[in-house]
Simulated scan of single mutants.
Amino acid sequence: MSEANPSSTEIRQPAPQGATRIFGSPGRYVQAAGLIDRAAEVISTLKVARCAILCSARSQRNEALRLQASLHGAGIETRIATFGGECSLREIEQQVAFLRDDTQPVDALIALGGGKTIDAGKSIAYRLQVPSIVMPTLASNDAPCSAISVIYTPEGVTESFEVFEQSPALVLVDTAIIAEAPARFLVAGIGDAMATWYEARACQRNPAGITPFGVRPTLAGTALAEVSARALFDYSTLAVQAVESRRVNEALEHIVEANTLLSGLGFESGGIAAAHAVAQAFTLLEEVDHNYLHGEMVAYGVLTQLLLEGDQTEAERVGRLFAAVGLPVNLAQLGLEATDSQSLATVVEATLGFPFIGNMPLEITAEQVQQSLLAVDQLGTRLMTELGDLPYARLHGAE
């Protein structure tokens, strides 16, 4: 890692014939119920002697205690770094300074927690020039397996992203911990993961489409994205039921893998497009950003992208699944109104300004984005009339 800072990739078009393709992946991915209590068995393979554990104050009273017990039992020392809650450059630099101010430097960093903790951990590990180990406590997004961190302002608005030279050395997922978290987080992960296939499909259809690595999509990344979507259609409902009962079953194992591994590798090596453009645009609206999860915003983005592409059949199919598991399918379920022209204008402008909107295989105009946002609202409202909104209401405590 010779560079002082990670790269920030920009769209480069057109991609020439024979353009570079890159497939990124973690050194090893391990998923099992109860894994945290034997995490040292896997972490010891890196020959580390002293690990930093980046986690929230809440986690320090729960999962971090179990992780420390496993590591200490294997003779690995630990140092806790308390995550402040926002993956901002200010937070990252503060944590780097904290961990450098020590007579005994760490030789690995474990990011234990949700998506922003994980992204911050990857950025901190890069700057410390140590391997990153990712241990998600939620299956709410596909950050764990990627070599990418989304950077936010201290207020939580998307600011930029970083691409690292190396993927995480290890990704360890304890499905028993995932099953203990509120079902809303797993459901949000389903929204984030579903985007992976449709965005990868768009990048493949566009001869100039590129991945976050700044290169052409790989067949492998696109294939994994498609497998992820297939698993979501087949197992999501059963997996959500399992989490609502706080138990691990085969459906949950499949969905955790789809949300975490398949989606993570699929978006990174297959590409992103309009679904995430819409989701990141929603973060500019304080009332949405502060009350809804990334995957919930992405879910609305998926439906918007499908209607931008004119794929009404697939929008119906995806919308029905989203409604069945409790993802937002109309603007009201994101705390917005179709008549709020100012908020819609903000979303439209930011969508068109997203770095990877050019991956769409057709020209996108502001009018098309606005029409599609409103068409999703109409579709979702109709689905709610047909199917009811009980799953959404249950997840959001509005029964």
Score class of each variant (00 low, 15 high):
Ala188Asp: 11
Gln333His: 12
Thr346Leu: 14
Ser146Ile: 13
Ala323Leu: 09
Ser88Met: 12
Ala49Gly: 14
Gln13Cys: 06
Pro168Asn: 06
Leu284Glu: 08
Leu71Val: 11
Ser160Asp: 13
Val134Ala: 06
Thr9Gln: 07
Cys55Val: 13
Asn5Tyr: 07
Asp107Gly: 06
Gln342Glu: 15
Leu373Glu: 07
Leu46Pro: 03
Ala40Ile: 02
Ser123Lys: 02
Phe267Ala: 03
Thr158Met: 07
Arg28Trp: 00
Glu159Gly: 10
Cys87Asp: 06
Tyr300Arg: 13
Gly114Met: 01
Asp119Cys: 09
Cys55Leu: 00
Ala32Glu: 09
Asn259Phe: 00
Ala120Val: 03
Val187Arg: 03
Val134Ser: 02
Ser245Glu: 13
Gln94Tyr: 05
Gly156Tyr: 12
Thr365Leu: 07
Leu362Ile: 08
Met1Asp: 08
Ile255Asn: 03
Ile76Phe: 00
Ser146Cys: 15
Ile22Gln: 10
Trp197Ser: 12
Leu35Pro: 03
Val240Cys: 08
Leu336Ile: 13
Pro6Ile: 07
Pro217Asn: 11
Leu238Lys: 12
Leu387Phe: 12
Glu244Thr: 12
Leu67His: 08
Tyr198Asn: 11
Ala33Asp: 10
Ala323Asn: 15
Pro26Asn: 10
Leu293Ser: 10
Gly271Glu: 01
Ile53Val: 13
Leu71Trp: 02
Pro16Asn: 02
Asp389Lys: 11
Glu367Tyr: 07
Lys122His: 00
Asn291His: 15
Glu165Asp: 15
Cys203Met: 06
Val30Thr: 14
Gly397Arg: 14
Thr313Cys: 01
Phe98Leu: 15
Leu352Thr: 14
Glu257Asp: 04
Gly191Phe: 09
Ile357Leu: 09
Val134Leu: 02
Phe185His: 14
Leu89Arg: 15
Arg100Leu: 14
Phe267Thr: 03
Gly209Cys: 10
Ser44Tyr: 00
Ser140Cys: 04
Val288Arg: 07
Ala220His: 12
Asp37Thr: 14
Leu308Trp: 06
Gly18Lys: 11
Leu67Glu: 10
Asp340Ser: 14
Leu109Pro: 04
Gln333Pro: 06
Glu91Gly: 14
Thr78His: 03
Pro217Tyr: 03
Glu162Ile: 01
Gly191Leu: 11
Phe322Lys: 04
Gln368Phe: 02
Ala183Leu: 03
Leu128Lys: 08
Ala193Leu: 11
Pro26Phe: 06
Phe282Ser: 12
Tyr300Gly: 11
Ile124Arg: 03
Cys55Trp: 00
Gly270Val: 06
Glu296Ala: 13
Val171Glu: 11
Glu244Tyr: 01
Asp107Thr: 08
Gly221Ile: 04
Gly84Tyr: 01
Met297Leu: 08
Gly326Ile: 07
Leu252Arg: 00
Gly189Ile: 11
Val248Asp: 04
Met135Leu: 11
Tyr152Cys: 10
Ala315Cys: 13
Ser70Lys: 08
Cys87Val: 10
Pro144Arg: 14
Ser263Gln: 00
Val243Ser: 01
Ile76Arg: 01
Gly270Ser: 02
Leu35Lys: 09
Pro217Asp: 03
Arg61Lys: 12
Ala258Leu: 01
Gln305Gly: 09
Leu252Ser: 02
Val298Ile: 15
Glu162Trp: 04
Asn62Cys: 05
Gln305Tyr: 04
Gly380Thr: 08
Gln68Trp: 00
Gly326Trp: 08
Pro212Cys: 14
Pro26Leu: 07
Gln280Lys: 06
Pro14Phe: 05
